[in-house]
Simulated assay, not measured.
Amino acid sequence: MPTSTHTENSSRRAESQQDAFATAWAEWHDAHERRRADPHGFLAVTHLHWLGAEPARLDGVPGTWRVEDDAVRLVLGPGESLQRDGRELNPDGGATVEFGPIAERDGINLTAGDTVVELAKRGGEYIVRPRHPENPLLREYRGTPAYAPDPAFAVEGTFVPFAEPRATTVGAAVEGIQHVYEAPGEVRFRLGNRELALTAFNGHAPGSLSVLFTDQTSGKTTYAANRSLTIAAPAPDGTVSLDFNRAVNLPCAYTDLATCPLPPAENRLPVPVEAGEKTPTERQDA
Rank of each mutant, 00 (worst) to 15 (best):
T3F: 04
S4L: 14
H6R: 13
T7V: 15
S11A: 15
R12W: 10
R13F: 11
A14Q: 14
Q17C: 06
Q17I: 14
Q17P: 02
D19Y: 13
A20D: 10
W25I: 05
W25H: 12
A26I: 12
W28I: 07
H29G: 03
G41T: 00
H49R: 04
L51I: 07
L51Q: 08
G52W: 03
A56C: 05
A56P: 00
V61M: 12
G63D: 01
T64K: 09
W65C: 02
V67L: 04
A71P: 02
R73S: 06
L74W: 02
L76F: 06
L82E: 02
Q83F: 15
R84T: 13
D85S: 10
P91V: 03
P91W: 08
D92A: 12
T96F: 11
T96D: 10
V97Y: 08
G107V: 06
I108A: 05
I108T: 13
L110F: 01
D114T: 14
V117P: 00
L119C: 00
L119S: 01
G123V: 04
G123R: 00
I127T: 13
V128A: 04
P130W: 03
P133S: 10
P133A: 13
N135V: 08
P136N: 07
L137K: 14
L138Q: 05
Y141I: 05
G143E: 10
G143Y: 09
T144D: 07
T144V: 08
A146Q: 09
Y147R: 04
Y147F: 15
P149E: 10
P149F: 11
D150G: 02
A152K: 13
F153T: 02
G157P: 00
T158K: 09
F159H: 03
F159L: 06
V160F: 03
V160I: 11
F162P: 03
E164T: 15
E164Q: 14
P165L: 10
R166K: 15
T169N: 11
V170A: 08
G171W: 09
A172G: 07
E175S: 07
I177L: 10
Y181C: 03
P184Q: 03
F189L: 05
L191V: 02
G192E: 00
R194N: 12
E195R: 07
E195I: 01
T199P: 00
T199V: 15
A200R: 00
F201W: 05
P206K: 13
G207N: 03
S210I: 14
V211H: 07
V211I: 15
V211R: 03
D215P: 00
D215V: 02
S218T: 01
G219F: 06
T222A: 13
T222L: 11
T222S: 14
A224C: 07
N226Y: 12
L229I: 02
T230F: 13
A233N: 07
A235N: 08
G238C: 01
G238F: 01
S241D: 12
D243N: 06
F244P: 00
N245M: 03
R246E: 01
R246N: 02
A247Y: 05
A247C: 05
N249I: 01
L250S: 08
L250N: 06
P251T: 01
T255M: 05
L257N: 02
L257H: 03
T259Q: 06
C260Y: 01
P263V: 10
A265N: 09
N267R: 02
R268V: 15
V271E: 06
P272N: 11
V273Y: 08
T279I: 06
T281S: 10
A286Q: 12
A286H: 11
